[in-house]
Design a protein around this nucleic acid. Structure first.
Length: 113
DNA sequence: TGATTGACCAACT
DNA sequence: CAGTTGGCCAATC
């Protein structure tokens, strides 16, 4: 039961904790894990997230601009958009409106555990 | 097995 | 002001 968790696994654990109706950014997750500059790896982890047993709500992870950078990886062009809209988000021009309001920062939310 | 890349971000030129 | 580069980890070529 040694929890030898890799970077990707850590990313998954954080992502699954994102509350419904909230979103976060790749950089925020990376920052929470202590490696802010590994934000690329967070996106990489999302790419492999479908291999994970758990369902990773990757649609709740966007870039720091609130833009759906990974929409192309959801199988269809607007799949990510549809998922977000079904959770109450307003997506316009591949960008999440009121991004700052909906933003869920793990560094803040998970800090006091 | 070494080199490259990848759903990012920020600094530098 | 816009294009380039460095950084991190893991997977692919």
């Amino acid at each position: 039961m040694s929890e030898e968790i890799g970077f990707f696994q850590k990313v998954y654990q954080v992502v699954v904790l994102i509350p419904r109706g909230r979103i976060t950014s790749y950089g925020a997750i990376a920052a929470y894990l202590g490696t802010k500059q590994s934000s690329r790896m967070v996106g990489w982890a999302m790419n492999q997230s479908h291999m994970n047993e758990k369902a990773i709500p990757a649609h709740r992870v966007v870039n720091r601009n609130g833009i759906l950078t990974g929409k192309a990886h959801f199988g269809g062009r607007d799949v990510m958009k549809q998922l977000l809209e079904s959770e109450g988000f307003v997506v316009e021009n591949d960008q999440i409106m009121n991004f700052k309001e909906k933003f869920w920062d793990p560094t803040i939310e998970l800090k006091q555990v």
